[in-house]
Design a protein around this nucleic acid. Structure first.
Ligand SMILES: [Mn+2]
Ligand SMILES: [Mn+2]
Ligand SMILES: [Mn+2]
Ligand SMILES: [Mn+2]
Lengths: 220, 220
DNA sequence: AATTATTTTTAGTTTTGTCTAAATTTATTT
DNA sequence: AAATAAATTTAGACAAAACTAAAAATAATT
């Protein structure tokens, strides 16, 4: 496996994340995601195409090749292992891990990564609930749904949260909701799409539609 | 404290290390140390002078300013904390830690470094026996001498080893010498400068002058 | 279908860090 | 004190990664 620059890696990862929801990724999407300019994206996409990491015909958008996907999963593995390390070992808050992991992920030394994985006890998910690819690049596909789609009275487990700011963290901590919390919806209110939810045997309480939209759960 | 590029940091650290033994550091010394060309060194020295990190008049060599020294100690702190982490937590061998730490040292996030220090239990020295600067940039000055200079029959403690290759590690492991080992010289042989040394009550054995030259000890 | 708007690409700069080759300065010999 | 050698700096080139502004292609409207 060849080595890629920090910049190349950031673009590869961006395309990977964007193509999860979108089948073809556009120049403007990548530019928006990385806070860079469209012209810079075009330059880099040409380079990554030349390295056979993505398919790209001009004006047609991009998708990672199998090789590109493998590279992306390596970066994501490192990113999430470091996030786990920062949260579990260094007691970082949930909203502080991402920024530092964004730098640590670019150190590709294989022994470092695999020994870190071992040291951490082979964690399955990062502090945001996202799955960590294993040393072979295999990643768990969790069929998660948005809390807004969960049927009433079906118990589900909080799997991940899409917004990762300190503002949502503050609210989630106050409501005592975290990754792994088991909960069920008792009632949905049509007027403001707010939800009445219950955790275990505790009294039910209400959460806003804005919060519910950012919570993802698994059930059955 | 401003932020410096990876490249700037590598040069700052090189000058720091070189000026420990040499009162003025030369262009060729830095080029040799960093495996770069003299012309590149001159370019960077101009830049670091402009940033007031070192004193430099052309053709006259360089020395770090107080500010430059502070920056250097920050880099060395990060380098040695990561070396300690790699050796103690990830069970890296002694000769494998340097290369990875060379990359990790450039992540300057203060919280990361200070929390790592706390997690490691505020270690005083790295796996090679070199002191780790504290969060304020204070570093212990150990009056260490080369084993070749230790008087006969004076017990001393192995403090550090200047060569950090796997070849010296192999030999030291075989001889059961490591950082912290207490030993004394029983006899020096003029012919080849070899030394007969003893560890505790064990039988004495011989080491070569080439090995002795790379071992540093403290005594009293 | 023609016009307008949006997206994407191209062309040309800029910054950082590296290099080679030539020029200059300093150090060492004769 | 010249002459020669070594070290250092300058000049000019190059690659990576970013940018702006203009051109080209595609998409959306009228
Ligand atoms: Mn990154
Ligand atoms: Mn994450
Ligand atoms: Mn380094
Ligand atoms: Mn060390």
């Amino acid at each position: 496996m060849l080595n890629y620059s920090t910049s190349e890696e950031n673009y590869i990862k961006a395309v990977y994340h964007l193509q999860l929801t979108d089948d073809s990724v556009t120049t403007n999407e990548v530019a928006g995601y990385l806070k860079t300019k469209p012209a810079s994206v075009t330059d880099m996409m040409k380079k990554l195409k030349a390295k056979k990491l993505l398919n790209y015909e001009r004006y047609r958008g991009f998708r990672l090749t199998a090789e590109g996907t493998k590279v992306a999963l390596g970066i994501i593995r490192r990113h999430r292992l470091w996030e786990y390390f920062l949260a579990e070992k260094l007691r970082f808050n949930w909203d502080e891990v991402h920024e530092v992991a964004e730098e640590l992920e670019h150190i590709t030394n294989k022994k470092l990564v695999d020994k870190l994985d071992e040291f951490l006890g082979y964690p399955r998910t990062d502090p945001h609930g996202d799955p960590i690819p294993d040393a072979n690049g295999k990643i768990e596909v969790t069929r998660k749904i948005c809390l807004t789609e969960l049927p009433v009275n079906k118990t589900a487990t909080v799997n991940s949260v899409s917004d990762q700011s300190s503002k949502i963290l503050e609210l989630l901590e106050h409501k005592k909701i975290s990754i792994g919390t088991r909960l069920e919806i008792k009632k949905r209110f049509e007027f403001d799409k707010s939800l009445e939810i219950r955790i275990g045997r505790q009294p039910a309480f209400t959460i806003s539609s804005q919060l519910a939209e950012n919570i993802f759960v698994t059930h059955e």
